[in-house]
Amino acid sequence: MKKIAYFLSMLMLLTAIAPVAIASDKPADKEPSPEEQARLEQLDERVKEIKAMDFKAMDKEERKEIRNELREINKEAKALGGGVYISAGALIVILILLIILT
């Protein structure tokens, strides 16, 4: 029984810590600079323009170009935006601690 408890506790620990170790080196607390914020707004406007387009009137090649452009916009926005991510294991541990401590 002790082996199972030990195994499960290590599994929970690794599940909670692994995504943090894999995350990018960019600090999550960093706010985007005014230039980055302006670029994010430009990307957002372009996405809105693309969503307003009529795809049925386009041929296959044009739709493919738009799809590739959206993928590039998504990659660039993720690189500029950063963010904070919590793994499922960490979320479960936090909830259990909140339940136990209250």
Rank of each mutant, 00 (worst) to 15 (best):
M1D: 09
M1W: 04
M1Y: 03
I4R: 09
Y6F: 14
Y6S: 15
Y6G: 14
F7V: 11
F7G: 11
S9E: 02
S9K: 03
M10I: 10
M10C: 09
M10A: 11
M10P: 00
L11G: 12
L11D: 04
M12F: 08
L13T: 06
L13A: 09
L13N: 01
L13W: 02
L14M: 10
L14V: 12
T15L: 14
T15V: 07
A16H: 03
A16V: 04
I17L: 08
I17F: 08
I17Y: 01
A18L: 12
P19K: 01
P19N: 03
A21T: 12
A21L: 15
I22M: 10
I22G: 06
A23Y: 10
K26D: 15
K26V: 14
K26E: 15
P27S: 01
P32F: 07
S33N: 07
S33P: 00
P34D: 02
E35G: 06
E35D: 09
Q37E: 14
A38L: 05
A38Y: 03
L40S: 02
E41K: 11
L43N: 11
D44M: 04
E45G: 07
E45M: 06
E45V: 07
R46Y: 05
R46Q: 06
R46V: 03
V47N: 14
K48L: 10
K48G: 08
K51H: 08
K51N: 11
A52E: 04
M53I: 03
M53D: 09
D54G: 05
F55L: 04
F55K: 00
F55G: 06
K56V: 12
K56R: 10
A57R: 01
M58T: 05
M58C: 02
M58Y: 02
D59N: 06
D59W: 02
E62A: 15
E62F: 06
K64I: 09
K64Y: 07
I66Q: 06
R67H: 14
R67G: 09
R67P: 00
R67I: 11
R67Q: 15
N68D: 14
N68G: 12
N68K: 14
L70V: 07
L70E: 09
R71F: 15
R71Y: 13
R71D: 14
E72Y: 06
E72C: 03
I73S: 01
I73G: 01
I73R: 01
N74A: 15
N74P: 00
N74R: 15
N74C: 08
E76V: 01
A77D: 07
K78E: 09
K78H: 05
K78I: 07
L80Q: 03
L80A: 05
G81S: 12
G82K: 03
G82T: 06
G83P: 00
V84H: 09
I86Q: 10
I86R: 08
I86S: 13
S87N: 06
A88E: 13
G89W: 01
G89Q: 02
A90T: 06
A90H: 07
A90G: 11
L91T: 07
I92W: 08
V93N: 05
I94F: 15
I94L: 14
L95M: 13
I96P: 00
I96G: 08
I96C: 10
L97R: 09
L97E: 10
L98F: 12
L98R: 07
I99M: 14
I100D: 03
I100M: 07
L101I: 11
T102K: 10
T102N: 13
